Amino acid sequence: MSTTTKLEADAAREISRSDGESCAAASTDGPAHSLADLVEQGFARVKDTHERMSHLLEEASETFNQAFMAASRSSNEFRMQMIEMMQANMRAGLDASRQLATAKSPSEFAEISAHQTRRHLETMTVQAQELSKITDKVVKSAASSIRAISEKSRLAGC
Rank of each mutant, 00 (worst) to 15 (best):
N65R: 13
N65Y: 12
N65D: 12
Q66R: 15
Q66M: 12
Q66N: 13
A67F: 10
A67I: 06
A67E: 10
F68A: 09
F68H: 11
F68D: 03
M69E: 10
M69V: 14
M69K: 12
M69C: 11
M69Q: 14
M69S: 13
A70D: 15
A70Y: 01
A70K: 11
A71L: 06
S72E: 13
S72K: 14
R73W: 04
R73E: 14
R73C: 04
R73V: 05
S74H: 06
S74W: 00
S74Y: 03
S74T: 03
S75E: 04
S75K: 04
N76I: 02
N76C: 00
E77S: 07
E77N: 03
E77D: 07
E77V: 00
E77A: 08
F78G: 02
F78I: 00
R79H: 06
R79Y: 08
M80V: 10
M80E: 14
Q81F: 00
Q81C: 12
Q81K: 14
Q81G: 08
Q81L: 08
M82P: 03
M82S: 11
I83N: 06
E84Y: 03
E84G: 05
M85I: 14
M85D: 11
M85C: 09
M85Q: 15
M86F: 12
M86T: 02
M86E: 12
M86G: 10
Q87T: 15
Q87Y: 12
A88T: 00
A88N: 03
A88D: 09
N89F: 08
N89K: 07
N89T: 02
N89M: 10
M90V: 11
M90K: 09
R91I: 02
R91W: 00
A92H: 06
A92P: 01
A92V: 03
A92N: 05
G93C: 01
G93N: 08
G93Q: 04
L94D: 01
D95H: 07
D95P: 04
D95I: 02
A96M: 05
A96Q: 02
S97W: 07
S97T: 13
S97D: 14
S97Y: 10
R98C: 07
R98A: 09
R98I: 05
R98W: 00
Q99S: 12
Q99P: 01
Q99T: 06
L100F: 03
L100K: 09
L100M: 13
A101N: 10
A101R: 02
A101Y: 06
A101L: 03
T102S: 11
T102P: 01
K104N: 08
K104T: 10
K104R: 13
S105F: 08
S105D: 06
P106H: 04
P106A: 02
P106Y: 05
S107Y: 07
S107M: 11
E108D: 09
F109E: 11
F109Y: 15
F109V: 01
F109R: 14
A110S: 11
A110G: 06
A110Q: 11
E111C: 10
E111Q: 13
I112M: 00
I112E: 00
I112D: 01
A114E: 10
A114G: 02
A114F: 02
A114S: 10
H115S: 15
H115G: 09
H115V: 10
H115Q: 15
Q116M: 09
Q116V: 07
T117R: 14
T117C: 01
T117Q: 13
